[in-house]
């Protein structure tokens, strides 16, 4: 897929703005129903907790992810929303991004996009010391 096509896909999906958004989405693509505490989730994807929290909100607000309603429980059940209106575009993007080169290309495309307005304004950079990072994923600027 060309960078232009990736950019078009990102435009259609609309909500993704950083590598953490993408990596969380990829994580839930492989684990569509996950029951985890957010700290563990942050370890799995290799970003710091505030960043993960913000990306989770992004995905949930966009209707790509559902979270169990009991916010007081330390662990949450996350379910990838397969039937979302964006589902087709997201699936196409994830099929590209599940390979290493594809993921890097999508992250590059995200970097070149104008910043989306989102609350909090946390930088989208992976945590250098986050452990463990699954599948020795490479991230830009790492």
């Amino acid at each position: 897929m060309t960078p232009k096509q990736i950019g078009d896909l990102l435009d259609r999906i609309g909500c993704l703005s950083c590598s953490c958004d993408l990596d969380l989405l990829l994580f839930f693509y492989r684990h569509p129903r996950a029951f985890l505490i957010s700290e563990r989730l942050a370890q799995y994807v290799g970003y710091d907790l505030p960043q993960v929290a913000q990306s989770l909100d992004t995905l949930i607000t966009a209707g790509l992810l559902q979270r169990s309603p009991n916010a007081t429980h330390p662990a949450q059940l996350y379910v990838l929303a397969r039937g979302s209106p964006l589902g087709g575009w997201v699936s196409s993007l994830l099929r590209v991004a599940e390979k290493r080169e594809g993921r890097l290309a999508v992250i590059q495309a995200l970097k070149q996009r104008p910043p989306l307005r989102r609350s909090g304004g946390v930088e989208s950079e992976p945590v250098a010391g986050a452990q463990p990072v699954p599948h020795t994923r490479e991230v830009p600027n790492a």
Binding site: H31, P32, R33, A34, F35, L36, I37, R40
Partner: peptide
């Protein structure tokens, strides 16, 4: 249902 979690949880 396939549920991914941790042993501790």
């Amino acid at each position: 249902k396939l549920i991914f979690t941790t042993r501790q949880l």
